[in-house]
Design a protein around this nucleic acid. Structure first.
Lengths: 111, 111
DNA sequence: ATCACATATGAGCAGATGATCAGATACACA
DNA sequence: TGTGTATCTGATCATCTGCTCATATGTGAT
C-alpha cells in the first residue's frame, strides 16, 4: 500500500475534517439511527438550526449526507455506508482503550 | 447503539481531529509502513523537522503514536492498531467512490 | 569540555473554523 | 396573494491551527 500520495493525504484529511467537530459527530450519530430533518437535528445536537444547516452544508459537500424535501421539511440521511462503518469502528475504538475521564493530553516519551 | 453522548462526541471528534490534517495523515501513513525517526518523517512529508515535531507532539498526546530514543534519534511508531485499521478503511473509502479529481464541493440537494 | 547532530519547545502570526445574527428563499395552506 | 413554518445563506467575529523562527535540550564523538 506504499506511502500515500499528497493528493490522497489531502482527501483523507478532508474526510476526517468532516468528522472532526463534536456537532458534526452528533449529527452523523443521529443519522446513523435513521433519516432526520434539520429542526430535529438541531434539538438533538443542541445548537441553533442555522448552525446545523451550516454544518449540514459541509457534510453535503463532502458527500457524507444527502437531503430530500418532504413537505416543508428537508430530511437528511447518510449518503455513505463506508462512513457509518468508519464511524462505528472509531466509536468502538474510544470506548475500548480510553480508560481516562478528564481532558486530553500528557506526553508519552520526550522529556 | 443509541444516540451518542456529548462526551463521546467530543472524544470522537478529538480522534478525527488528530487525523484531519494532510501532514499528520502522511505521518500516520508513513508509520503504518514501520517505525521512523523525525528527520526521515520530515523528508517524507515535505515539511520542516520542527513542524513534524510539533505534529508528533499532538499525535503523542492523542496516544496515536509512541516514541523511543535510538542513539541521537527519536523513533516513532503507531501506538494503536485500531488507528491503522480506521486509517486503512478510510483510505479504501476515498479510493473507491471519489471519481472526481479537482477540489472538494458542490451541493447535493438544496437549491 | 566542546562540537555537531537530532529533536523539542515557546512565541508569534496568517489563515481556517464554527457560532450567531440578520435576512433570503422555499413550501403549504387559507 | 399573503402568512407562518422550515431551511438556507452571507457577513462578522472570536477562537483555534499549523507553520516558521529562534532557542533550548539531549546525545555521541572527539
Amino acid at each position: 500500500m506504499a506511502t500515500i500520495s499528497a493528493e490522497q493525504a489531502r482527501q483523507l484529511a478532508e474526510l476526517f475534517t468532516a468528522l472532526s467537530d463534536p456537532s458534526r459527530v452528533r449529527i452523523i450519530a443521529a443519522l446513523v439511527e435513521g433519516e432526520t430533518n434539520v429542526g430535529a437535528l438541531a434539538a438533538i445536537v443542541g445548537i441553533s438550526e442555522s448552525a446545523v444547516s451550516h454544518q449540514l452544508r459541509t457534510l453535503r459537500q463532502m458527500r457524507l449526507v444527502r437531503a430530500h424535501r418532504q413537505g416543508r421539511r428537508v430530511v437528511y440521511s447518510l449518503d455513505d455506508a463506508h462512513v457509518a462503518d468508519i464511524f462505528q469502528r472509531s466509536l468502538d475504538h474510544i470506548l475500548h482503550d480510553s480508560p481516562d475521564g478528564d481532558s486530553s493530553a500528557l506526553d508519552r516519551t520526550p522529556q
